Computed example of a mutant assay.
Amino acid sequence: MEISGACNSHHSKEPTLWNTLTLAFQTLGVVYGDMGTSPLYVFADVFSKVPIESEVDVLGALSLVMYTIALLPLAKYIFVVLKANDNGEGGTFALYSLICRYAKVNKLPNHQPADEHISSFRLKLPTPELERALNIKENLERRSSLKTFLLLLVLMGTSMIIGDGILTPAISVMSAVSGLQGEIPGFGTNALVIVSIILLLLLFSIQRFGTGKVGFMFAPILFLWFFSLGAIGIYNVVTHDITVIRALNPFYIYLFFKKNSGDAWSALGGCVLCITGTYCH
């Protein structure tokens, strides 16, 4: 079957400036709310595995955090992952559904008659990119093992997101509440756990109102949080040691691993905490 031209009868309404600003404000309470809590426990976890013995340890760990954020959330997700969507919907199952509509790779028999036209089309004079895509599509449709492997990847990715959704709130809340230890007399481990459980129950109880309302509720709080982080950070850099900007040099990452060898690789697991939340939104 050949398709020489096609017309799209569906015209999506262009978002207005107000809608864009509203969505941007909501992301403060949803997406960046998860990312913004990471500074609470990243360095504590990193330096629990690598003791601070020289400025190389501090600058190397800071440089590692900065470039982890730059390479994964910024480079990978903004420039690559956001372009892969299913009519604006993202996520593991949305992308899997998109693949299943254009290739017969689904292990479950849910194909519709209209999918036959999508899955079997051929273009005139395909470009090299389209030719590679067709080859991949045909290999996926022909080999049952690749279909199973693709499904396992989808299930694994979804399981990791569910695991993050369970672990991250608990770690974030307990890390925040742990700041009260030492400040309030008698506030020990038992009190820390009880207060954290109460806060988590309150937070999860309001999820039923929807992401939009929750985002608007927490957006002003997160705005103050980020403003405070930025203001305090700038003040500390200017007041105490402005040479900390040397961490922008990725060479300190090499020095960090050279100095600490195996311990540095263990600390790398703690560094990944700085990007929690970026892969599930």
Rank of each mutant, 00 (worst) to 15 (best):
V65Y: 02
V50L: 00
D164L: 09
T211A: 05
M156Q: 11
G188L: 14
G270H: 09
Y235K: 03
N139L: 10
L134S: 01
L200M: 11
A94I: 15
N135E: 12
I234V: 08
L108M: 09
I253D: 00
L130F: 07
F93A: 02
I136A: 02
M174E: 11
K137R: 08
I194A: 04
K259M: 01
F204W: 15
A84L: 13
L21P: 08
V58Y: 05
T276S: 05
L255D: 06
I232A: 06
A176E: 11
S120K: 11
S228A: 05
M156G: 06
G262P: 07
K124P: 06
G179M: 13
I52D: 03
G88D: 14
V31D: 08
D164Y: 15
Y252G: 02
L199A: 04
I184F: 13
D57I: 04
T92V: 13
D164R: 04
A267M: 09
I245Y: 10
S9Y: 15
D115W: 14
N139P: 01
V173M: 11
P39C: 04
V31E: 03
R208H: 14
A75V: 14
I242E: 03
L273E: 09
N87D: 09
G29W: 10
T211I: 09
L59T: 05
D57V: 01
L153H: 00
F209P: 01
N8E: 14
I166M: 07
G91Y: 11
A133T: 14
M217G: 05
F149G: 00
G230V: 13
E14L: 08
S119N: 09
L71A: 03
G36A: 12
I234D: 00
S63P: 01
F218N: 05
G230N: 04
E116G: 03
V65C: 03
V56Q: 00
V237A: 04
L125F: 13
L140R: 02
R208F: 10
G33I: 09
N87W: 15
L150Q: 04
S12Y: 15
I3M: 03
E138F: 09
V272H: 00
S38D: 07
K258A: 05
I242W: 14
V50N: 00
S12M: 10
L40E: 06
H281E: 12
K213T: 06
L28Y: 12
S4D: 10
K124Y: 15
C7P: 06
I171R: 02
G157V: 13
G270D: 12
F204I: 14
I99V: 11
L59G: 01
G165D: 12
M174R: 13
P39R: 10
P126A: 00
I221Q: 04
V80W: 12
G179E: 13
Y279N: 02
N135W: 10
V81Y: 06
L17N: 06
L98S: 07
P220H: 08
T189W: 14
T158M: 10
K13P: 08
N85S: 09
R101Q: 13
F218K: 07
V58F: 04
K124L: 06
